[in-house]
């Protein structure tokens, strides 16, 4: 093969490689989320009350414990589960009882959920129970929201800020 032909051949190989390199560096495009929908993210971390109240230890029990462990009150570390409901336009989108995290069950309960909804006006109701009550909820938040296509709305919870927070 002549030198000119060889360099031509090399140029051809480089051009083909450049085309492949450039193409897959950004194409084909990927649709992660339908552009005509809006997103609601329910994401919170919240520790419920401890399981059961504290109990006074008897003298008998105290004597059995190591001296440095002899505290008069026995308080369980384990937390209750957190019950969460999310309702949109009157229909229940999500309801779950979230166990506490951590090996000892003393960490906060966590949820991270994504829901695609049609854009437009929606009535959102979020409820949360973090005590040992049998029914009803400790927190409830309802709000009319207006969502545009492609918008992302986060539903968070901070008890110190009064409960649910909608972040847009």
């Amino acid at each position: 093969m002549s030198t000119a032909l060889r360099y031509l051949g090399q140029g051809f190989v480089y051009a083909a490689f450049a085309l492949i390199l450039g193409y897959f560096a950004s194409l084909p495009t990927y649709t992660h989320f339908p552009p005509d929908q809006a997103l609601i993210k329910l994401s919170l971390a919240h520790g419920a009350d401890r399981k059961g109240g504290c109990r006074r230890r008897s003298q008998e029990e105290l004597r059995k414990l190591a001296p440095n462990m002899r505290r008069p009150m026995d308080c369980p570390r384990q937390r209750l589960p957190v019950l969460i409901e999310l309702e949109i336009d009157g229909s229940l989108l999500y309801r779950d009882s979230l166990p506490p995290t951590g090996l000892a069950g003393d960490g906060p309960s966590q949820v991270y959920q994504r829901f695609a909804v049609a854009p437009g006006r929606h009535a959102v109701v979020a409820r949360l129970r973090d005590s040992d009550r049998r029914d009803g909820f400790d927190y409830e938040h309802s709000e009319q929201i207006e969502l545009a296509a492609g918008q992302s709305l986060a539903i968070d919870f901070r008890s110190e800020m009064g409960g649910f927070i909608l972040r847009r």
């Binding site: 897959f24 560096a25 649709t31 992660h32 997103l39 918008q151």
Partner: peptide, 28 residues
């Protein structure tokens, strides 16, 4: 040559109030 003909570009600036929908992805 590739860099001059087909420069690398950014996409729209990040906005956490929006969901990334259609994306040009670096498949490598």
């Amino acid at each position: 040559v590739l860099s001059l003909i087909w420069p690398a570009l950014s996409q729209a600036p990040a906005d956490l109030a929006r969901v990334p929908t259609e994306l040009g992805i670096d498949w490598y």
